[in-house]
Amino acid sequence: MELITDYIAFWQDKYDSILTYTYEHLVISFVVILLSIIVTVPLAIYMTKMKNEKIKNLIFNIANVFQTIPTVALLAIMIPLLGIGFIPSITALFLYALLPLLRNTYTGIKSIDPSIVEAAKGMGFSTFGRLFKIELPAALPYVMSGIRVTTVYIISWTTLAALIGGGGLGDLVLAGIGYNDKHMIFTGTILAIVIALILDLIFGKFEKKFSKA
């Protein structure tokens, strides 16, 4: 009983800063997701049209390298390069998000039933018409599922941005560790989880709508 009243008192006391941390967290995550979508989706489409296997593999390998660097290490590398704060956090997380998005979009478009592409060709679509009216819409369910998975990762990785001064719910957790404050640690963790779950749910709904087919 005491535990709960204590926790309520903590919220009453801190809800202002909790909201700020949450807001920061969301901003970082969304900027990263948006940026990575803007870069990867067109790149992935371009790659599906690319004949040169070597260049394709090279791009995948580069994206893969960023993936294999431990998150904390990648963030740390940013400090000598870009200093601390918002920009280096975004950059590091963006590099991290590249591979899952690239791979999902690429395989999404690649996995369209070839007979659909052939039917579209046979019916007299131009290359561009086919891409925008048939291939992309048909691949949308896959692309959406890539975005969804990546978003959930990003929300969780963003917690680490606090390490290099990016802010967000990670700050709350770090501060909690510093003050040995269970409430702070708990709240930061739970909020990150809840945000991830809610977004997962929303994207899931979208995905279902698109994958009607």
Binding site: S115, I116, E118, A119, M123, A138, K212, A213
Partner: peptide, 15 residues
């Protein structure tokens, strides 16, 4: 566009 084409695997556009 002037030739109808029914392909072997149907190939309807799913979306």
């Amino acid at each position: 566009r002037q030739m109808g084409y029914v392909i072997q695997n149907i190939g309807l556009f799913p979306h």
